[in-house]
Amino acid sequence: MSLLNYTLRIGDSSLILAQRLAEWCTNGPTLEEDIALTNISLDLFGQANGFLEYAATLDGVKTADDFAFKRNENQYYNFLITEIENGHFGDTIIRQFLFSAYLYLFFQKLATSKDEVLSALAAKSLKEIKYHLKHCSSWVIRLGDGTNESNEKIQSSINKIWEYTGELFELDQIEKDLVKKEIAVNREALKFEWDQIINTTLNQAKLMRPKDQVMKTGGSKGIHTKHLELLLKEMQFIPRKYPDAKW
């Protein structure tokens, strides 16, 4: 049961962020960025599908689609950073940068999990995340070390989103038990390397690292921001309204 919960946590974060990024489709600042953000979204949808398919196997009754389309917000376990609104392009880039740096380290460790399915999905996802991180880092540097206006805007993006990063490194009992079994990743231990990635890029981008403050938390318990409900309403609309609809 705890393995199912753990698998959903991983899949949910990818799924919700994928849905958020899909909102950029036809709204990107340039054609290339429109394609970039939606390609990243597509990778994350694919990754989410792998984890939710595994969750369905573990559950034995529900399908991956049931997990995606028939859960309410309090049954979703994604990190809060993945559900916050896109804001402007700089906000989206900062969110993607902070989260990709985390996922990059997370999947590296999960690839050595004793659970063979999780480790295979992680190794696969890692290849894609590396590319996302590279893309977002270059944008952070371009915008941070750009004009005064772009620097100010993206500095305020990072100041605003920072409070959602604490949760990435918090463990609860479910995860601690799975860490002992060498199935789950000890996310607390990823913080040091994450700090290094973030600090190096922010220095290069001439941006200030925000001071750690009171961090927002709750995703893994199903306690979310007001934004998730609206996102799910849109994502789940057709399967909820027309349960037998076929694609």
């Binding site: 394609i35 390609n39 990778d43 590319y131």
Partner: peptide, 13 residues
């Protein structure tokens, strides 16, 4: 490099 992402996931421009 014009764009790190192309018409399909496997290509860049």
């Amino acid at each position: 490099l014009v764009s790190e992402f192309g018409a399909t996931a496997c290509k860049s421009l």
